[in-house]
Design a protein around this nucleic acid. Structure first.
Lengths: 245, 245
DNA sequence: GACATAACTGTCGGTAGTGACAGGTTTCTA
DNA sequence: TAGAAACCTGTCACTACCGACAGTTATGTC
């Protein structure tokens, strides 16, 4: 089987080369398998609005724009299923499970995109979640057999590509580095917030203005590198930064 | 190829059955591939000393005792590499990279265990890390070809088994507290709120409406007898009602 | 004297959270 | 077969939060 040999060649590359560019990986995938399009995204699920760390795809600019403009992200059942588990997500299955997402699939059909594909969740232990979406280029009737044969190939290669991306991601973890100490007032205000007090109440308790309470909370949020008071309190309690009362 | 068919049968089982017991998975793996032993462990990397959540293996009691008694865990280079990345870890490679771990491999040889095997890291987004160690039962000279052929099978099947374990593990959390005050959904929503997510984002993550997220949070607030989400999270973290992430 | 840090205050506009209203389904147990 | 419990959804009115704008004063250290 020459098919087999192509896979093994690709496997050798993915296992032995330190860095494999997305463009190259995608090209190799498309030449090895019957793939129409690929999409790889690395998402920080801790950040607000799912901050995307890393994104590469081979879809047309038109298709990408439609997806974003129509707000399909909000109803995309594939995304939901991908975020919620670690099993491969079949697009057809996702479509069946969420009939409300028909507009998305109709739009995809109009753009000439097939509906046969699979998305592989690629979790990491650091609360980031990546996935590789694979859009097959085979007739619908051949899809089940194609999927069954190549899912294992996709899973392994996706994992190796994901490993390559992570290993070459030089981002510095700011959580430890930027963890400045909180001032007295910041600790105080955080403590009262954890006790369920509103800004106005805390201002009254401490004899300062509501605005100033907000100022301290904003500083605390920045120092803890979080986006909401709730998250700040969760961090502070876990790190034992505020006294229990 | 009957070999192929056996793999596909196993794949069908792993994809379609809700719960696959470790014992059965291991038996199926051993009958499908030339495998001597298997070990699956699910580890909480945040807990002190790597608390093991879930563990199953087919090694002999003697081998397991030797491993523990000799403190091999501390010098086990396979474990290190597994914890530190997401690529498959070859035992031979680990041995080469860490010559100081020779005692471990010598002991393994004395117990009649081969040294050809591979360990697959299986990360989750919740700071837990599992792995499946596969100890091959093929002559050393056949190992490279065997590995190349079946690594993809192992990767996919390991992922599916891991998914099965995770999906069936969520229900036994908090059992130590006896009176489980919060429901599963309430705990889940509280956890995401502590992570700084908005109602809309949580709804997207869990695949439910924003309104329903609000419903769960309202119930959680009432049960915890607090007035704000922030206070609820503070209480929940202090009482260890939500997992740390 | 320049600089850094902590404490403090005001306004505006937008988004997120909150309570109270009123429904629904599924699943399990008495 | 009734009822409880968990899960799920919608709308309205109101309040709280949050980022970005633009400041002041006091206390230190180099």
């Amino acid at each position: 089987m020459t098919d087999q040999q192509a896979f093994f060649d690709l496997l050798d590359i993915m296992e032995n080369e330190k860095l494999v560019e997305a463009k190259r990986f995608f090209a190799l995938m498309r030449s090895t398998f019957c793939i129409a399009n690929l999409l790889y995204a690395d998402v920080d699920v801790l950040a607000t609005g799912f901050a995307i760390h890393w994104l590469h795809h081979t879809f047309s600019a038109c298709a990408a724009r439609t997806y974003l403009d129509e707000g399909f992200r909000r109803i995309d059942p594939i995304l939901r299923l991908t975020m919620g588990g670690i099993r491969p997500v079949d697009w057809a299955t996702a479509r069946q499970l969420h009939p409300e997402s028909e507009p998305l699939f109709c739009a995809a059909a109009q753009l000439g995109l097939g509906i046969d594909g699979v998305t592989l969740p690629l979790p990491t232990p650091t609360r980031r979640l990546a996935f590789l979406a694979i859009h097959a280029d085979v007739p619908a009737e051949q899809w089940p057999a194609y999927r069954r044969t190549h899912l294992r190939d996709f899973q392994l290669l996706a994992n190796l590509f994901h490993a390559s991306v992570l290993e070459n991601d030089n981002r510095i973890e700011l959580s430890e580095h930027g963890a400045k100490m909180l001032t007295h007032r910041e600790t105080e205000v955080l403590g009262w917030t954890a006790a369920g007090k509103s800004y106005w109440e805390i201002g009254t308790i401490l004899g300062i203005s509501e605005r100033t309470v907000r100022f301290f909370m904003t500083n605390a949020r920045r120092k803890l590198n979080v986006v909401s008071n709730t998250q700040a309190v969760a961090q502070a309690v876990r790190r034992d930064l505020i006294p229990t009362f």
